[in-house]
Amino acid sequence: MLTTLAPDTGRSGKPRPVPVRRGNHFRKQTATNYLLIAPALLLSIVIVVIPGILTLLFAFTNWSGIGFNFDFVGIQNFQDIFADPVFATSLTNNIKWLVLFLVIPVIVGLLTAALLLRRKKMRTFYQVIFLMPYVLAPVVNALVWQTIIYNPNGGVFGLFGLQPPTSSQSTSLYAAAAVDMWHYWGFLTVVYLGAMRQTPVDQVEAASLDGAGGWGVFRHVYLPSIRPTLLLMGVMTVIFSFLAFDYVYLLTQGGPAHSSEVMGTYAYAFAFSSFEFGKAAAVGLIMSFFGLLASVLYTWISRRDLTR
């Protein structure tokens, strides 16, 4: 793996000089550098990786989460989960969530970014407004929507005589997804706009001289130019869609009657409502599997950037 990587200094300007004095001094310098990188790696390994490996282990036990008394139960947890209709609902809801997020925020983000490209003066103003929901806490966003918009008594829905969408089985998932998307799309606008602005100006001018209109320039110049960003954000969306938790938990708790349950809330209920940490670990493992697929894809797509 290592040997296949082309040596590259990765910095502009002069190539990095080869250290002349080897031996003691060089070894000491390497040690210092490992010392500098150690705190970041150690924190990540102790807090994320080791408990992650434990989850892998506990998924095959009947661990209750209290103390470390448990028996290995083989694939019993997975058999129970796959036989549970709520798990099927959760997985389906995660996939619906993924489709919604791959379509609506992407279209809105691309449209607004493309329009902002030409509005040089107002660009910052709009970006700041679009990002406002994004920088606020999910707790705040969810409670604001629940209290003043979805509320049948005194909220906007009540004003129009509508039932709250969070308490109907057919709309609960979409009610939670709507708030999450409202908070998220502005972020995509900013990322897409940042990528579009990297497009070489001469390409845009050449296309305009060839008689391409606004749509033509967008379709044939900007869209291909931001393809890596679109792909990357798409992969990120896949990962986060399988991990959706905050807005569902805050707005519907997965209800009514599990209609808006996603794998995140399903796992959380196992751990902290029924103290079946073994099953929670198993669901966590299944969620991570989807994330891992996307993560491998992501690492693969960005491998050139990483080793540059």
Partner: peptide
């Protein structure tokens, strides 16, 4: 390069993969 790949993977590790044992400890 290995550290970079490790960090990319770590960036996408879901909270639900490590929160349960971490909470217990």
């Amino acid at each position: 390069p290995i550290i970079m790949i490790y960090l990319t993977m770590a960036m996408t590790v879901p909270i639900q993969l490590f929160i349960f044992p971490l909470y217990s400890v």
